[in-house]
Simulated assay, not measured.
Amino acid sequence: MRRNLLLLGAAAVLAISVGSSLAQDKKTLAIVVKGLDNPFFEQINLGCQKWMSENADSEYECLYTGPASSADEAGEVQIVDDLLTRGVAAIAISPSNAPAMANRIRQIAPSVPVMTIDADFLADDRDLRKTYLGTDNYLMGVKMAEEAAKLKADGGTVCLQLGNVAADNINARAQGFRDTAAGEKGVDRLTGQNGWTEIDGCPVFTNDQADLANQQMADTFIANPDLDAFILIGGWAQFAPQAYTQVTDQVMDKLKSKDLIIIAGDTLPPQTKAFRDGRSHAQVGQRPFEMGYRAPDVMMQLINGDSVDDPLFTGLDICNQEDPGFCADN
């Protein structure tokens, strides 16, 4: 019952938003993210709003939406379904469950341009979208492995923390990390290659929930006191800074001595502070604001039939102890 109410609530908000657009005689460029509870996606919203402020006279408006919870994969599919049914000029989707979203898009066969943002469809379903705008996620995983290797030249025991099981972007990062750590392509699991071994019980999956991410970290540290590396493929635990501080307080001596290293994805303000406080050794950040800011223009190009590159990568920001870079001032 509660799930149905959430879906109905999301649909109601959506109806108001789209209705407002129609009342203003503006065409809707929709951005649908995995969940409104994730601060990473709020940066995409800020980019969308910045575009709106600079294009007040445009015939288009940027609509940012998604399910209340990042764990609500079915809710995201329903929102996309509702938007396409009600009528939008184009849509950019960050699919939480890539196969489920692709299956629905294939069933609907929308006449309006569909693109992906932040997270892509699986390779076999990419014919359904015109382009992907966001991070080169495999490269992001590569960079995380390179940072780990700088700190642990001989490898060690490692736990990867992932998000949703079917999220293509997260899985691509994990693949990039494993391939780079192992020194070979197509590695399903690290079992000693170049000294790296994934511990039993890992990877762990957060379902994009910050509280669960922190609990998983705490449990892993307790169960594996000799763990060499914990890799946050996404920044979930750090999105709850108080809880993350409490978890890392328990291993601060190990973090300072680098007996235990933490490499994390993303560079939002709570994360850069965690880095400056010595609660991570490197951050590999995406550029979500740029994704939200660029998406409306890309959708307009698609509507106009213009040639658009595929993919459109937005780059990475890397912070480490040798070069704090972006993390020093943000």
Score class of each variant (00 low, 15 high):
164 N>S: 14
224 N>E: 15
231 I>M: 14
274 A>W: 06
210 A>R: 12
208 D>G: 02
189 R>F: 13
172 A>N: 10
201 G>Y: 02
210 A>L: 02
218 A>G: 04
209 Q>L: 12
192 G>C: 10
170 I>V: 15
271 Q>A: 12
253 D>Q: 14
232 L>F: 03
269 P>M: 12
274 A>M: 09
260 L>Q: 02
177 F>C: 09
157 T>C: 05
246 Q>Y: 02
189 R>V: 14
159 C>N: 04
198 E>M: 10
253 D>T: 13
182 A>V: 02
229 A>T: 05
195 G>M: 11
170 I>H: 06
203 P>Q: 11
265 G>R: 06
176 G>K: 12
180 T>Q: 02
256 K>Y: 02
256 K>M: 10
191 T>G: 07
241 P>C: 13
254 K>P: 00
208 D>E: 15
230 F>H: 02
202 C>K: 07
267 T>W: 03
249 D>M: 00
206 T>W: 00
222 I>T: 15
174 A>N: 08
163 G>K: 00
154 D>I: 04
161 Q>A: 11
176 G>M: 10
181 A>G: 07
225 P>A: 05
249 D>I: 00
213 A>I: 03
219 D>H: 03
279 R>I: 05
260 L>T: 00
249 D>K: 01
192 G>W: 12
192 G>P: 12
274 A>T: 10
184 E>Y: 01
209 Q>S: 14
176 G>V: 09
263 I>N: 10
162 L>W: 03
228 D>T: 13
253 D>F: 04
250 Q>L: 11
162 L>I: 03
155 G>I: 08
213 A>C: 00
232 L>R: 01
241 P>S: 09
210 A>D: 12
262 I>N: 03
235 G>L: 09
168 D>C: 06
223 A>E: 12
248 T>K: 10
173 R>Q: 11
246 Q>K: 12
236 W>H: 10
215 Q>D: 14
182 A>Y: 01
270 P>W: 11
155 G>E: 06
234 G>C: 07
213 A>V: 02
229 A>I: 04
159 C>M: 09
250 Q>R: 13
276 R>N: 08
184 E>M: 10
260 L>K: 01
277 D>P: 07
180 T>K: 14
248 T>N: 10
214 N>H: 05
158 V>H: 08
248 T>Y: 11
157 T>Q: 13
248 T>G: 09
255 L>K: 05
195 G>L: 12
222 I>F: 08
177 F>I: 07
195 G>A: 03
220 T>K: 10
270 P>T: 11
258 K>G: 01
213 A>T: 00
218 A>L: 05
175 Q>Y: 04
209 Q>H: 01
186 G>E: 05
279 R>Y: 07
274 A>N: 07
214 N>A: 12
229 A>C: 15
256 K>V: 15
223 A>T: 09
190 L>N: 03
206 T>R: 00
170 I>R: 03
264 A>G: 15
184 E>W: 01
267 T>I: 13
